[in-house]
Design a protein around this nucleic acid. Structure first.
Lengths: 158, 158
DNA sequence: CACTTATGTTATCAACTATAACTATATCCG
DNA sequence: CGGATATAGTTATAGTTGATAACATAAGTG
């Protein structure tokens, strides 16, 4: 995880056999973006190891908690998940008794998603965990202003 | 790609059946980071569709170009790729006659990586393509100063 | 009504990542 | 020196993720 050290040299083979010229890759927006995202997600995975919850699952649970009764497709689309792949995801959460798929009243094709009582308690715990992580990230970014600057910059890339 | 619209409501089920409450997920650093990264990578994939080159392959080629003669393990480690997975990646590039695996002089176990003449010409083309994309990203970020601010913020997350 | 679209689902497939085990070398140290 | 240990590349394998196609059922629509 420690690169850098780009000495101004004409020929890399003339330099010591330890440092590589990496500025052509490591200085790229896409590359750094990926590394930062992997780092944050890795931290999430560590933190949620006990709860056996993945980032996508967490976002699904929170979204259902805030929008009970919505169809699978609606939740999936907001998160950019294909509905075919969303089936497996919801199935796992349903097996763990965190989510219920109720038959929708007005559309018999659709599954209305709700949290179970257990699911709601679970989300409270998960949210607390994640809020702590988020708070630490904000601190690293130099407070809410730094966070907002980052989000603003990220938006311009999308 | 168009969320937002968090009306101050006590119950989401009372609101119109179109907008979802998403601020709990979409305002998160990790989530936005992932979306931005996916967006940039998606753009990369579109751009490099003709060249049939993936982001990881591009970074490998550039790294070999700037550091000819290095061992597979060295290149792989810098990029955070497991050497077991790096084998397949290099094999693909070698089959396309872009990269050569030469026996290392001082270590008969190691493969010294070089670009072929064809590989060097290919990298020139790829670099030009990528430089154009990078320039556009920098423009979106409000110039080099914006880019540097972004990279600085991303570093704090790692 | 027939035609088209939407929902959830299953079955695949490709790409990426991670781990274990193996070989052949290399290095270390008593 | 020589045996133990570590390293480079490789293979095999499994888990995760994302994408696509096809299907049954149900809604919508002219």
């Amino acid at each position: 995880m420690k690169r850098e050290a780009q000495v101004p040299l004409a020929d890399a083979s003339a330099v010591a056999h330890r440092s590589l010229l990496t500025q052509a890759t490591t200085s790229l927006v896409g590359y750094r973006l990926r590394r930062a995202q992997l780092s944050v997600f890795h931290r999430f995975l560590m933190l949620f190891d006990d709860l056996r919850l993945r980032p996508a699952e967490y976002s699904v649970l929170v979204l259902i908690a805030d929008n009970p009764g919505r169809k699978q497709t609606e939740i999936a689309e907001v998160l950019g998940i294909k509905r075919a792949n969303f089936v497996t995801l919801v199935h796992g959460l349903a097996q763990r008794r965190l989510v219920e798929r109720a038959a929708s009243a007005d559309d018999r094709r659709a599954n209305a998603l709700h949290l179970t009582a257990e699911g709601q308690a679970f989300v409270v715990r998960a949210r607390a965990l994640h809020d702590a992580m988020e708070a630490d990230l904000v601190t690293r970014l130099g407070g809410p202003a730094g966070r907002d600057r980052l989000l603003s910059l990220l938006d311009r890339l999308t």
